[in-house]
């Protein structure tokens, strides 16, 4: 497996020899090779290859329709008709023990619009826990997840209130806490702050940076400023291909490809 030396977030000491069959936390978190996707005759993704370091945020930017959301859904198994290979922690996702459901417990996905279940806040957070007994004794876990998602202070005295009483921003953070509660190896976020107010945006970005210290994140975003704030490596996609990828500062300051340059300028000019 190739290791991309351009990723400055990639920790050199986490580079021991690894076993390609068993999942190994010290290895590269995600390796995608020649991922291709065709739906209804339309080519959504082609020849997508990249790898993800063990910690840090990787932002995926690009114009609408570039296939960014579809990429995420291929990675976590919601879409299964892709070609190529995806390996999480050295283990091929198609051969994941337990099938796609198990894979999704290790690769969490947070959708653009928050979807909360019709139960209490606490029940929502431990929804991913399998057994009823686990859910009963999960108080510590609930608190930890809510803190990581920057929601604890706002809900700590009403954990049993219905989750639907929260604002959109709070609900999205609840979704993040819910995903964190099952301790995934990696978290994928599909434009998590797209429809939220600036305060929630800020809170979520902060919690993302914190989470990224231990868990690799992939974040699709339309907001270039957000991608810069997230300080990770950046992947620029267009028409289903990766045009350029690299450390954020480098990409934004000196984009190598014309398309990247155009996109950045166009987005900057069009930004509010």
């Amino acid at each position: 497996m190739t290791i991309d030396p351009r990723h400055e977030n990639f920790q050199q000491e986490a580079l021991p020899s690894f076993d390609t069959v068993s999942p190994n936390r010290e290895a590269i978190a995600l390796q995608v090779e020649r991922l291709g996707l065709q739906l209804d005759g339309k080519v959504i993704l082609q020849e997508v290859s990249f790898s993800l370091p063990v910690k840090g945020v990787t932002s995926v930017i690009g114009p609408s329709g570039a296939g960014k959301s579809s990429l995420l859904r291929c990675l976590n198994g919601l879409l299964t008709q892709w070609s190529g290979s995806v390996a999480v922690n050295g283990c091929d996702t198609r051969q994941w023990r337990g099938g796609w459901d198990q894979l999704r417990r290790h690769v969490g996905l947070i959708a653009q619009k928050p979807v909360v279940f019709n139960t209490s806040i606490r029940a929502n957070v431990c929804f991913g826990l399998k057994s009823w007994r686990q859910r009963r004794h999960a108080d510590e876990l609930v608190e930890k997840s809510l803190r990581q998602a920057a929601l604890w202070d706002e809900v700590k005295d009403r954990l049993n209130a219905p989750a639907t009483t929260l604002s959109m921003g709070q609900q999205q953070r609840l979704c993040i806490a819910r995903a964190l509660a099952i301790k995934p190896r990696m978290l994928l976020l599909d434009e998590p702050t797209a429809s939220l107010d600036p305060h929630s945006k800020q809170l979520i970005e902060q919690s993302m940076l914190q989470i990224a210290e231990q868990t690799p994140l992939v974040c699709v975003t339309h907001d270039l400023a957000q991608a810069q704030r997230l300080q990770g490596s950046v992947i620029f996609m267009c028409d289903g291909r990766i045009i350029e990828q690299g450390p954020g500062e480098q990409l934004f300051a000196q984009p190598q490809r014309i398309e990247t340059r155009e996109f950045i300028n166009w987005s900057v000019c069009d930004c509010d």
Binding site: D101, V115, A179, I182
Partner: peptide, 23 residues
């Protein structure tokens, strides 16, 4: 979206049925 959220958490079909759909 509810079904998908449950899927994203890795919850299998029967658990989705009992804990999300039927309630």
């Amino acid at each position: 979206s509810q079904r998908e959220a449950a899927k994203n958490l890795g919850i299998g079909w029967d658990a989705t049925l009992w804990r999300v759909l039927l309630p």
